[in-house]
Every structure is written in structure tokens, then in C-alpha cells.
Design a protein around this nucleic acid. Structure first.
Lengths: 324, 324
DNA sequence: CTAGGTGCAAATAATTTGCAGAGGC
DNA sequence: GCCTCTGCAAATTATTTGCACCTAG
């Protein structure tokens, strides 16, 4: 788990001079949750007994944004706010016009659509902003929610693990079914092997999930942060359904390839964005595993296709000999 | 087709006083395309030989935003811009950091996801902002695109009609297939009737599309404005595929219900947002037609289920009598 | 010693406001 | 005549800059 100071050092641009004032401002900033305006940060500094001129705070904030330590956010109220990126992945915002608070979410599906749209328009994406303005649950119902803040990093890890577990479960189910219906002995062996791997990995993920909840009991009840329909509605689950409708060996492999490809993409994308090193490792390992599965399935598909084509030409040759 | 003056009158708040200055500013503003800052508008007014103080322009812009004649847009460059809503539906933005121009798009899919996310979080949506920052095609490749501006309203109408036509086509295909495979005579008649209706409607839509293209030949080549995967990847097309995998009469009805529901939602949402009254009418009529289909299918499904259940209990009774 | 970094005050930039006068109902 | 709208100038707000001074490398 990377420390804040290491995080800053990693991003600090080379050649610059250190200064105790800047270090101080950066450290105070990194300790804050949520979105701060320059003035908010000056106030926090004052409250902690440090005096800094506004200009320096503005300059430091700009420096942090350039370095990637902070991100600008603009909620359209005339002042620029900043959030730090230490253990805090890029995300989208729900902004309540009642209480002026904002809550964060991520949606793999929205991101995928945005990428697709940009692609069709020949647009190279830098960064995208999704802001949903409205009234939050609390403001509408008057009910108070659990007040304790859970760092976004944990919510991210929680949801990512939930999705991974769901994916493994339905992957396991998919490969078991596929093994059952596959006629080709070699293909069957491949599916069995993949099922076994999913089973083993599932155990690991569940252990990690239990550990995460043990660290913070509040975590389980927090609302969803990471939305991913591809997993929720079930990439593999949809695949399994297709199998049930009667697929032959080749189709089964093809469906498996599609599922693994989607799953690999998802875990790669979010693994890369993960700040917590434990979760990041798990995710990238998962992505790698899925890629291996994917490659195995593709090899197997090619092999099966080749064998079938050989079988066909042999049959044709036989038929031809019979003709003449 | 509503005139600009009628549009303003419809939205003008009651009780206010008219003034020739305000009317002038509003009229000039409505003639502009794209996103104007207050200063841009002052410049346009100056260029047309009218002088107005900045304060008045700011006040008028604010008045228009309150009245719903204008919408604020903020691209994070420190100044607020405005776009008018006359024949201009709400939309999302692609913003090029190279040339500072923005292009607009709509995505039913993104909207649906946003609604779903807000719903899960108990958040009442007011308005949502989706901005994709990056570099546009022209800036990256250096190639120049056709320069003539096509009003968004037309692109919207074009894409909506394309989607409607696609939907009708695959709906027609779906119902023809369903009629072919349905064993129950009554159910078959329902599917035939729906197929005939889709056929007729398709003709109307194609005529309207041809008319639209005739009005503006540049229209056809412009990039997609309205993205809707539900239609593109084919709500009904997916349904038809399911039919082919062997569906019984009830399943066929159920698939039809799902398709009509998705289609109805889509056309209702965009029909309501459509400003051009001709297109709006087509869309809402379409939505109504889809709702009628939906209701017909639901009735038919219930009727079939009831008949099947009666048949089953009769069979059981017969079996029971044979037993004793 | 010298390129950055800091503080203060003044400058900008976008937008809003106070107030006196003009004009629609 | 009253109440709203307009114009001008001054005020406000968020942010940036000039410049003298300071400090780490």
C-alpha cells in the first residue's frame, strides 16, 4: 500500500525545487476528503495554524493538477474545485442541488458507450465528464444516512471484488456446462481445465472479499459505486443461456471466447485504474488469467476447426472415390 | 413548424413587461448557432449595428435561461456559454481541446444507464451533463470536413427516422417469423395483424425520410447524432434470433412484449423531446402504436396462458377419470 | 550564487449590482 | 403613475500576475 509521500514523490516533476511550504500544502490537501476550492484549502490551512497566501495555494493547486496529484472538477458554481487522486480513481459525479454535496460513481457501461461514440466520430478521448444534477435521497426523504465516510478506494475494491466473484461464479457454471455438452474429447478437457481454474480463483477472491469486509464492517451496506451491467446481467450467464439453447462444440468455444474477451477487458481497464496495490494486483492477475483463458480457447477453436475441416475433406475424398 | 416568435411567446413568463431591447437581443440570440458567451452575443449585436450594455445582455441571458429559451453550458474555460433551445433538443457534448469547437450528440443508451444509476442511488435526476474532452478528427488528421452547418434538429430527425425505420423493418421481420412458427391459430392471427401494421407504418416512415433528405441533400452524409444501440444492434432483430432458436407460442409472445416495450420507451422519450412538430408527431404516434401493440400482445399472452391452463386441467381431469 | 518558490498587493476577467432615468401598460 | 427594464459605472468574486524577497541545491 503506497504512502501519500511516496505517491507525491512518484508524480513530482523532475527538476523542480522542494519547498517546505508546498510540501505542507500538498500534505494537508491529501488528508482532505471530497472537493475543495482554493479558498476551502486556505481555510483548512488556517485552521491547522499555518498561514499561506492565496496566491501560493492557487499556484500549488495548479502544480498538483499538472503533476496529476490533483484533478480539477467544476460543478458550475463559478469556482473551481480540486480532488486529489491519491487512492482515488477517476469517476463520475452525482451532484445534489439541495445540499450541494456530491457523490461519486463509476460505470463501465457508460465508459464503454462513450468510447464507442467518440470512436464513431473520430474523436480521440482525453477525459470525460459525467455529472448528474438533481436531488439526493436524503434531501428528498429527510432520512439521514450513515454519516461515516468510507474512502472511495474501499468502495471501488468492494465492488470490483463483487464483480470479479460474480464473474468467476458464472464462468465456473459456464465451463461446467460447456464441458458437459461438448462432444469432442479434447475440447471437453479444455473446458474442464478452465472450470477448475475458475473454481480455484473463486476461492481466492472470496477470501480477499471477506478480508476487506473484516477491515471495515460499514463497507457492506454502502451503495454501489462501480456499475457494470456486463457482469451484473452476466456476460457468462448470457453465454450459459446460449449454450442451453443448443450449441455445438464450435459455438461453445466461440461463446467462451466472447465472454473471456469482455471479462479480460473489464478487469484490465479497472485493474489499471486501481490505486490500492493489493486490489490492483488481484485485478491485473485476474485480467491476465482471463487473457490466458482467451488464448487457450482461441487455440482450441482453431484446432477444432482444422480437425473438422480435415475430417470433411477426408469424407469428401471418400465420397469422390466411391463416385468414380 | 413553430416560429421563433411563437416559441418565445410560449415560454415568456407571465407578468413581465415587454421591451424592444430584450426582444431584439432574444431574436438575435435565436438566430445564432452554437454556444455563445455573453461577450460573444454583445459582439454579434454590435456587428449588426445595435448597441446594448453588457449588463442588459447578461440580464437577458439569465432571463432566457430561467424561461427555458436558453440553456447554460459550461466547458470549464471560465466563461459561461449559452445555447438556445429553439428546435434544439437537450444533448451531450464532444469538446475539442485543439480547436475549441464542440459537437453534439445524444445517446439513448447513456441516458438509460444514467437513469438506472440515479435510481439505484435514490437520486432524482434534474439534468445531466456528459462532456467528452479530447481532439477532434479534423484537428488530428488535418483534413477539413464539409463546412456547411446542418441544424441539429435535422440530424435529430434524420437519426430518429433511421432508427424508426430500422425498428419497423426488424419488427416486420420478427412478426412474420412469429406468425410462421406460431401453432395457435388465434396467436398467429395476432402476429399477422401486427406484421401488416408494421408494413404500413414502415411505408410512412420511409416517405418521411425521403422527404427530409430531399429538403437537404447534405444531411445524409453527416455523422451520427443520435446513438441508440437498442435499435442498431436490433431489439427486434435479437428477438427474431431468439425465435429461430426454437420458441413456443408463449415465448414468442413474451419476446414480442419485450421488444415492443423497449421500442415504446425509446420513441416516447425522444418524441417528447423532439421540437420539430412534424417529427414530434411521427414519433409520438409511433410510440402510441407501439404501446397498442404492446397491450395487444399482453392481452394475447394472457388469453393464451388461460386457454393452455384450461386445456391442461381438462387433460388432467380426463387422465384422472381414466385412472379411476 | 541563482533558478525557483513565496508573499503581498495590484491587475484581470467574468459577472453582478446600485441607481438614475426611460418606457410600456 | 407605477413598475419594470436599461445603461452606466462601481462593486464583487475568483483567479492571475508583477515584483521584491527568500531559500534550496
Amino acid at each position: 500500500m503506497e504512502a501519500p509521500s511516496a505517491f507525491v514523490d512518484r508524480l513530482r516533476p523532475a527538476g523542480g525545487k522542494r519547498s517546505s511550504k508546498r510540501d505542507l500544502i500538498v500534505n494537508v490537501f491529501l488528508r482532505q476528503e471530497g472537493h475543495l476550492s482554493a479558498d476551502d484549502l486556505v481555510d483548512v490551512l488556517r485552521r491547522e495554524g499555518h498561514k499561506s497566501s492565496r496566491a501560493t495555494v492557487y499556484r500549488t493547486l495548479q502544480w498538483m493538477a499538472d503533476a496529476g496529484i490533483a484533478r480539477k472538477v467544476d460543478f458550475g458554481d463559478g469556482r473551481t474545485r480540486f480532488e486529489h487522486s491519491y487512492r482515488h480513481p477517476r469517476h463520475f459525479h452525482l451532484i445534489c442541488k439541495g445540499c450541494n454535496r456530491s457523490s461519486e460513481f463509476l460505470s463501465s457501461d457508460v465508459e464503454a458507450l462513450i468510447e464507442e461514440i467518440a470512436d464513431v466520430r473520430g474523436f480521440a478521448i482525453g477525459q470525460s465528464v459525467v455529472q448528474i444534477y438533481g436531488r439526493c435521497d436524503e434531501c428528498r426523504t429527510g432520512r439521514r444516512r450513515a454519516a461515516g465516510e468510507v474512502p472511495v478506494e474501499r468502495l471501488f475494491a468492494r465492488d470490483a471484488l463483487r464483480i470479479a466473484i460474480q464473474t468467476e461464479r458464472s464462468g465456473l457454471d459456464f465451463y461446467s456446462r460447456a464441458a458437459r455438452i461438448t462432444k469432442d474429447a479434447r475440447g471437453r478437457r479444455v473446458f474442464r481445465k478452465l472450470a477448475a481454474e475458475e473454481q480455484e480463483h473463486l476461492g481466492k477472491l472470496e477470501a480477499r472479499y471477506a478480508e476487506l469486509l473484516a477491515e471495515d464492517p460499514e463497507l457492506e451496506s454502502r451503495p454501489t459505486f462501480l456499475f457494470f451491467k456486463g457482469a451484473a446481467s452476466g456476460l457468462f450467464a448470457a453465454g450459459a443461456e446460449e449454450l442451453d439453447k443448443g450449441a455445438d462444440d464450435r459455438q461453445a468455444l466461440r461463446i467462451g471466447i466472447r465472454c473471456e474477451r469482455g471479462s479480460h477487458r473489464f478487469f484490465k481497464r479497472y485493474g489499471e485504474r486501481f490505486e490500492d496495490s493489493e486490489g490492483k494486483r488481484i485485478f491485473l492477475e485476474f485480467a491476465d488469467e482471463e487473457r490466458e483463458h482467451l488464448e487457450l480457447l482461441i487455440r482450441e477453436y482453431r484446432s477444432l476447426a482444422a480437425r473438422q475441416s480435415r475430417a470433411r475433406s477426408k469424407a469428401k475424398a471418400r465420397a469422390h472415390r466411391a463416385d468414380t
